[in-house]
Each structure stands twice: as structure tokens, then as C-alpha cells.
């Protein structure tokens, strides 16, 4: 399992170089918007790395190699899910380092610190994204899954793009109140536990589906 994650990392050394550039671009383009730059940077980089890992596997027809090695298909699928978390962790570190450098050098660029809520939010959105995407990926392969992936990614931005201004515009709207409650620091233990359980359920259902699809694939 560890080897497959290592492979996902080794294979995209280039993405690691560009990672810094991606985050810089997001930081710069979010100057007016403010603190959402943190989750935006982290999610975008996680997303890009996950996509690249899938794309490289497809390009190298990796399924043939992986399934000829002494590896269960469950391991191949599980490694794909786990690498997303590794990518997320890498993205967080990247953001912290870049933001750190920017503050230390006193560059005329605003950056925001990473909060616990940011990380929880990123974790949640990454899980939602991959939980929807991976079953499709394992069912039909990378090329055919790109459509879904396109819809997912832009859907997220589209919904985000509609909701955020809405929230900012009218602080008293129902949506804003609800979001404030959701993101206020007085999180109810029950809500957190509930969200946690729902996320885990979502993730494990997705994993089971992916595995079921992948077990039926032919290469």
C-alpha cells in the first residue's frame, strides 16, 4: 500500500514543482476575496495531484502492471483513496510554507493562516469530491471519467461562486445564518460527530462501490 502511494508521489515530481506556482496563483487571485484562499489553495492542489496520479496510471496502462503484481485489487483501490489524504497533507504543508515565506519576506501580498476549520473543510470537500469521482474512475477508467470530473470540479466552483457572494451580500439571510452557525466556533459536539459519521459512511460506501467496480474490470 505504502509503495503505491510512494509511486503516486514519485511519478509526479513535476507537479511538485508546479504546486508552488498553483498556490501562488490562487493566493494572488484571491487577494480581494480573502481567507477562502486557504481552502481554495489546498483543495485545488489536492485535486490537481489526484487527477495527475489517475492520469499517469492511465497513460502507463498501470492496471495491467498493478494487477500482475502480488497485489489485491482492494489494495490498489485503497491506495488511491489514501493518496488523496497524502496529497491533502502535502498541499497543507505547501500552503503553510509559501504563506510563511510571504509573511517573513513582508511581500505586499495578503495571506491568511490555516485554521482547524480550514483543514476540516478541506478534508470534507476532498472526501466528497473523491467519493463521487473514484467510483466512476474505477468503473470506466480515466478518459471516460473526465466528464464527471469536469462537472464535479466546476460544479464546486460554480456553487461556491454563487453561495459566497450571497453570503457576503446579506448577512441576515437564512443561508448566511445557517452557514455562520455551521462555521462558528461554537460547534456542537453532536454536529461534529454527526458530520464525521456521515463523512465516514459516505467514504466507505464509495470505497465499496469502487472496489466492486474495479473487481469487475478487465484489462
Amino acid at each position: 500500500m505504502f509503495n503505491l502511494i510512494l509511486k503516486d508521489i514519485l511519478i509526479q515530481k513535476k507537479t511538485f514543482l508546479f504546486g508552488a506556482v498553483y498556490i501562488m496563483i490562487i493566493i494572488l487571485s484571491f487577494q480581494q476575496i480573502g481567507s477562502p484562499m486557504v481552502p481554495a489553495s489546498i483543495i485545488a492542489l489536492t485535486y490537481v495531484m489526484t487527477q495527475y496520479a489517475c492520469a499517469y496510471d492511465d497513460k502507463n496502462k498501470a492496471d495491467i502492471l498493478l494487477n500482475s503484481l502480488p497485489l489485491g485489487r482492494d489494495t490498489v483501490v485503497a491506495a488511491r483513496y489514501l493518496s488523496t489524504f497524502v496529497f491533502l497533507a502535502i498541499a497543507v504543508v505547501y500552503y503553510i510554507v509559501l504563506a510563511g515565506i510571504i509573511s517573513v519576506l513582508r511581500l505586499p501580498v495578503r495571506v491568511y493562516p490555516v485554521s482547524f476549520e480550514d483543514i476540516a473543510g478541506c478534508l470534507f470537500s476532498s472526501i466528497v469530491m473523491t467519493s463521487i469521482y473514484f467510483p466512476v474512475f474505477f468503473k470506466v477508467g480515466y478518459i471516460k471519467s473526465r466528464m464527471v470530473n469536469f462537472v464535479l470540479f466546476y460544479g464546486l466552483f460554480f456553487v461556491g461562486g454563487m453561495l459566497v457572494p450571497e453570503l457576503v451580500k446579506d448577512k441576515n439571510s437564512e443561508l448566511a445564518k445557517w452557514t455562520t452557525r455551521l462555521f462558528s466556533n461554537q460547534w456542537d459536539v453532536h454536529i461534529i460527530a454527526g458530520a464525521f459519521i456521515i463523512t465516514i459512511l459516505f467514504l466507505s460506501t464509495s470505497y465499496m462501490l469502487s472496489l466492486k467496480f474495479y473487481r469487475n474490470r478487465e484489462f
Binding site: 509511486k7 511519478i11 499517469y56 497513460k59 502507463n60 496502462k61 498501470a62 495491467i64 502492471l65 500482475s68
Partner: peptide
């Protein structure tokens, strides 16, 4: 009959 290793590695 074909190469199935990761070309980038």
C-alpha cells in the same frame, strides 16, 4: 509484449 512500467520513473 508491451512496456507496462511507469515511463516517468
Amino acid at each position: 509484449d508491451e512496456n507496462y512500467f511507469y515511463e516517468e520513473l
